[in-house]
Design a protein around this nucleic acid. Structure first.
Length: 263
DNA sequence: ATCTATTCCTGGCTGC
DNA sequence: TGCAGCCAGGAATAGA
């Protein structure tokens, strides 16, 4: 499931190929990918030039010569520059030089277009790689809710998903159900630092490929080899040797070490 | 403000 | 071997 490091990797591998190219035609093989309005979307995108491609949270933002196209990969989405790598093509962007295929097994992903940056992107919280300790700390202090659901809330910080929240909390030694406002200064600093470390390392590894994730060339990432808690229920904690536990928090599978991450 | 439950979707897994 | 049933989960949404 693409989170910040995976989306960042897609953007880095995609941008050099599509920057400056023109969308000759956008074809939606599944209307779901276009949010149920494939004709309208295809019309809006026809003839548009891609000025720049960037990431905001988990969104891929295509700045066009008129308007903005946003793509959210959700669970199983991919943006591929080689059709040969696509098994579940939902949309094809024919460029003046080359093509981009939006591939998505489970069809949760969406392509959208708007005149300006859409509200769902505009209201995202700060980027975890650039938010200051002061702002992050103040944000936590103001919320009495459990820290894991808070970190998953894209209006609080944008880009973390289930895997990386678990990994960050483990590295910082914070229980996923800890009340955000009651986390001590040292642990808050550790969490702030762990976001940079974990996300930075994951980007360097090309992301985590748990099931479907691939970059724009169809290549898998390898950060899953370095996961310390996610998907390791019952296995030994790399820090203390205790058994990694799995619980459900906010309907999400949550992995942590009960010895390193006390309540 | 925070919480839970529900919806979307389908390949892959479990268990019989 | 076959098949029903369940699971994974990001985000939007409704209701408590």
């Amino acid at each position: 499931m693409p989170e910040l490091p995976e989306v960042e990797t897609v953007v880095r591998t995609l941008a050099p190929v599509v920057r400056g190219r023109t969308i000759v035609e956008a074809r939606f093989l599944s209307p779901l990918a276009a949010g149920g309005r494939p004709e309208e979307l295809a019309e809006a995108l026809r003839g548009r030039r891609i000025v720049e491609v960037r990431r905001r949270g988990k969104f891929i933002v295509f700045e066009l010569d008129h308007g903005v196209m946003t793509v959210h990969l959700r669970m199983t989405g991919k943006l591929l520059t080689t059709a040969a790598e696509s098994a579940y093509a939902r949309a094809v962007f024919q460029l003046d030089d080359g093509e981009v295929v939006f591939d998505d097994v489970r069809q949760f992903g969406r392509v959208e277009w708007a005149e300006a940056l859409p509200e769902n992107v505009a209201r995202l919280g700060p980027e975890p790689l650039s938010v200051s300790l002061a702002e992050f700390s103040a944000g936590l202090k103001a919320r009495p809710r459990a820290v894991k659901p808070l970190l998953l809330d894209q209006s609080f910080v944008a880009g973390l998903g289930n895997i990386y929240v678990d990994e960050c909390l483990h590295r910082a030694g914070i229980h996923p159900l800890a009340r955000a406002s009651r986390i001590g200064r040292k642990k808050v600093e550790a969490l702030h630092a762990s976001m940079r470390e974990v996300l930075g390392e994951a980007i360097a590894a090309g992301g985590s490929s748990i099931s479907d994730y691939a970059d724009a060339q169809g290549r898998a990432g390898w950060f899953q080899r370095f996961h310390r808690v996610y998907g390791r229920e019952g296995e030994a904690c790399m820090h203390c040797g205790g058994a990694i536990q799995r619980i459900v928090v906010g309907q999400r599978g949550t992995h942590f070490c009960p010895r390193c991450q006390k309540r």
